[in-house]
């Protein structure tokens, strides 16, 4: 067992490997990266190598995948990511004002991480919440719809209070 992929992660990855034909382990690369990222928050070269070794895929091919999909973080990020959708529907409904509130609340600019390393703020492309614009997504899984300045405050303080896993 490599030091990077521990038993728990390996088990998770194996579950995904099992979804694909036995000679198509490569299909699990996307999720394997996600699982490793969940643990380490962002993906370094050695993580790529670990996934490559684990799934027996050339490391360049893992790197190709990593740099193609936008949910993978290639630079250091905080423990949580807050992404504000800035696609057209959200923008028409004031997404940039929302982004401004979040920036104020966190005291950082979009793209930065709070000093305590807790939260990274980023923009998201359309997250399929257009009818509930403006929208945000936290940790790439929890959707917040029709956000307002008040809601932003509450959401952020919840994260800060560790009210999230």
């Amino acid at each position: 067992m490599s030091q990077i992929i521990n038993e728990k992660m390996a088990k998770e990855i194996d579950k995904w490997v099992a979804k694909f034909p036995s000679d198509k382990k490569k299909s699990a690369v996307l999720m394997a990266l996600r699982i490793v990222q969940d643990e380490y928050k962002w993906l370094k070269k050695e993580h790529v190598q670990a996934v490559a070794d684990y799934l027996d895929v050339p490391n360049t091919e893992v790197g190709e995948v990593l740099t193609f999909y936008s949910l993978y973080q290639q630079k250091p990020v905080g423990n949580h990511t807050v992404k504000v959708c800035t696609s057209l529907s959200c923008c028409l409904n004031g997404a940039y004002s929302v982004l401004g509130y979040v920036e104020n609340e966190l005291g950082i600019k979009c793209g930065q991480t709070t000093k305590d390393g807790q939260i990274t703020l980023q923009e998201a492309e359309c997250i399929a919440a257009c009818a509930d614009a403006p929208a945000m997504i936290i940790d790439d899984k929890d959707f917040y719809r029709r956000v307002t300045p008040e809601k932003v405050k509450e959401i952020i303080s919840n994260i800060k209070d560790g009210d999230r896993p």
Binding site: N59, T60, E61, V62, G63, E64, L66, F68
Partner: peptide, 18 residues
């Protein structure tokens, strides 16, 4: 697979990832 394409769109570059 030594060379590959990393990044996407106009940012795509050919190289070895590691």
């Amino acid at each position: 697979s030594e060379l590959g394409a990393c990044g996407r769109g106009g940012h795509m570059e050919i190289g070895t990832y590691l």
